[in-house]
């Protein structure tokens, strides 16, 4: 095993453990922190694959923004934080769905790649930048218009102080 593979296995085991704890944790704040670990391990996997831009974006957006947003919304709303009422009765079905997806993905990836060995091919961050700001500059900018429209919409629908 190359050092790369060893790192990959370690990342995978830690990520898997965190993911299992994420869904079994009884405290929603703990669950959010396990989510940080799990997402960070995915980011680490991207680093092992030499996709450093994707890895940093993963850390910035998922670990940085989304989990923090989750914690903030827990803090600012009256969602139950403690041990009470963080469970519903759908455990069996969700486990079944999760295992089904795992089996499907495993089969598809096994079927598509078989024994092919794919060497990590480093895409320089510069190439990603050129692609975004040259070929996809208009969609890139439009996404922000889309988000702005969604933001206004959320404010309009949520406010109650209408005359």
């Amino acid at each position: 095993m190359s050092s790369q593979e060893i790192v990959f296995v370690v990342l995978g085991i830690v990520g898997l453990g965190a993911a299992v704890r994420l869904v079994t944790a009884r405290n929603v704040v703990h669950a959010a922190l396990y989510l940080v670990v799990s997402l960070a391990m995915v980011g680490g996997t991207y680093l092992v694959l030499a996709a450093e831009f994707v890895a940093f974006v993963q850390v910035l957006i998922y670990v940085g923004a989304i989990v923090v947003l989750l914690l903030f919304s827990l803090m600012l709303t009256r969602a139950p934080i403690g041990r009470e009422a963080l469970d519903n009765q759908q455990r069996g079905i969700s486990a079944l769905v999760a295992l089904g997806i795992l089996a499907g993905l495993a089969f598809l990836i096994q079927d598509a790649f078989r024994d092919a060995r794919i060497e990590p091919d480093a895409t320089p961050t510069g190439a990603v930048g050129v692609s975004i700001f040259q070929n996809f500059v208009l969609p890139f900018e439009l996404v922000s218009v889309l988000l702005l429209a969604a933001l206004i919409g959320a404010v309009v629908l949520a406010r109650k102080d209408l005359p």
């Binding site: 439009l142 889309l146 429209a149 969604a150 919409g153 309009v156």
Partner: peptide, 9 residues
Amino acid sequence: EILSLSLYV
């Protein structure tokens, strides 16, 4: 999506 989101609101 831009036109739809605006129209939903």
